[in-house]
Nucleic acid binder design. Structure first.
Length: 420
RNA sequence: GGGGGAGUGUCCCGAGCGGCAAAGGGGGCGGACUGUAAAUCCGCUGGCUAUGCCUUCGUAGGUUCGAGUCCUACCUCCCCCA
């Protein structure tokens, strides 16, 4: 759909050439607004966890480009909608989060945005409203009379997500219907409050966004627009941002910066170019140069990807430290003091800790059972020595000259155990 | 409303004559090979205070020395008839 479109705005030009665009309700319309620097766009973020993960990075980058190209970015905190819970894509409704939990998550998530956007009160500064501001104040009857009457059930029934469920005779709860309505209402409310005319999101949000556009028209708002980004998977088809250890979190307290850097460093060859476009701000000609590197040379491109992507979230210094840590660990084979570290009490260490428990404590394995299996498979190392006795004890005798014990799972995952 | 079928290892899909920690995939993790890549091959893939103990097959009971397997009720889903 976007092949023959020639954007006049920097915003769309960048989105297009970097691979952010999947679908747009009206490219020309959005283009004109963006060209004039009058585009205010929002993306909603649910507060279901205390950190966003790399899956959210793509929408965040869209907001960043939006602001960089002279428009107004609005990350919307879903403090209200999270109380309802978005059931789409799930066969079972998740347990509802407590309001305290949601608020705590929200506070934690908010910090991320400050690293990507400039907030303030100027026209083009980003703002971060919370839909709890208006949703929690809604009165059911009033909402039905003023907003609900504009929703065409006929139309909603024809939406793909709904149609599929009905055809397969699968439960579609009323709350799910309401989630769509609330999201649509958000769009209209943001238009009223801030003149927001564009909602962006992942391609799975298309239906919900269009419902918002429709509601806007029925309620006499100006023309609204939708723009979605492709669903990201790696070349081998895996969902982006999920590892066995869990999601790749953006918050440092959920995932050490070193591990974040490593995540990008381990990108598959085939993804390097695409990721450089999406997750860094390097100029396009440089990216083209980097992705054309062949064989082992592409590792240089991966390091740059890791540096750039890590700088964006954690800052240039932290990224360089991570890069240096990786260099020492992998290229020199020495122990860097800045590897992820887990502390144990010195009493405990003096008394001795079983190897199995030590690796569990370090978070390298999930259970002593797994530790046992890894030892059998030759996957665990203590100070680079293969661990082959599951009953061995780790004690202060193994502390090296830097005061730490290095525990490794496989060749890539290292944690330092430190007595305190 | 009537008739038929199905829910399995808390990532998913899926076999399972009454002896089952439960076949086989996918995914994931580890090993070999490499370039901290991919592909390929090999191993592992409930928990624990571990030659034993505990918890798992939709839910709750029952039969049995013994139940994923048989019986009863319930819940949920799928198909056919009205």
């Amino acid at each position: 759909m976007t092949n023959d479109f020639n954007p006049k705005s920097d915003f769309l030009a960048i989105l297009l050439e970097r691979g952010f665009l999947h679908q747009c309700s009206d490219l020309a319309g959005v283009d004109a607004k963006a060209k004039a620097g009058e585009l205010t766009a929002y993306i909603g973020f649910d507060c279901t966890a205390s950190s966003l993960h790399v899956g959210s990075l793509l929408p965040i980058m869209m907001l960043r480009w939006l602001q960089k190209t002279g428009n107004k970015a609005v990350p919307l905190m879903g403090g209200g909608t999270t109380r309802v819970g978005d059931p789409s894509g799930k066969d079972e409704s998740r347990k509802l989060l407590s309001i305290e939990q949601i608020d705590a998550n929200k506070d934690s998530i908010k910090k991320i945005f400050a690293k990507f956007l400039t907030f303030g009160s100027d026209t083009h500064d980003a703002i971060m409203p919370d839909n709890a501001e208006w949703l929690t104040a809604l009165n059911y009857i009033e909402f039905l009379r003023e907003v609900g009457r504009h929703f065409s059930v006929n139309r909603m029934l024809s939406m793909d997500s709904v149609k599929m469920r009905l055809e397969r005779d699968q439960e579609l709860s009323f709350i799910e219907f309401n989630y769509m309505c609330l999201q649509a209402y958000d769009f209209v409310e943001l238009n009223k409050r801030y003149g927001c005319v564009l909602q962006m999101g992942g391609s799975d949000q298309w239906g919900n966004i269009v419902t918002g556009i429709d509601l806007g028209r029925r309620m006499g708002r100006p023309q609204l627009y939708a723009l979605t980004s492709p669903l990201l998977t790696t070349s081998s088809g895996a969902k982006m941002g999920k590892t066995a250890a869990g999601a790749v979190w953006l918050n440092e307290d959920m995932l050490p910066i070193y591990d974040y850097w490593q995540f990008w460093r381990n990108t598959e060859d085939a993804d390097v170019g695409r990721f450089l476009r999406l997750f860094t701000e390097l100029p396009m000609d440089e990216i083209r140069k980097l992705e054309s590197l062949g064989g082992a040379e592409i590792n240089e491109a991966k390091k740059i990807l890791a540096n750039e992507a890590t700088s964006m979230v954690h800052g240039r210094n932290a990224a360089e430290l991570a890069a240096e840590t990786a260099r020492k660990t992998f290229e020199e084979g020495t122990i860097s003091a800045s590897l992820p570290t887990v502390t144990v009490s010195s009493d405990e260490l003096t008394a001795g800790i079983g190897v199995l428990n030590a690796f569990v404590k370090a978070g390298l394995v999930a259970s002593t059972g797994e530790a046992r299996r890894q030892i059998k498979g030759g996957g665990l190392r203590i100070n680079d020595e293969l661990a082959n006795d599951e009953r061995a004890m780790i004690s202060s005798a193994q502390v090296n000259s830097d005061g730490v014990i290095k525990l490794s799972l496989g060749k890539k995952k290292h944690v330092l155990l430190k007595a305190q």
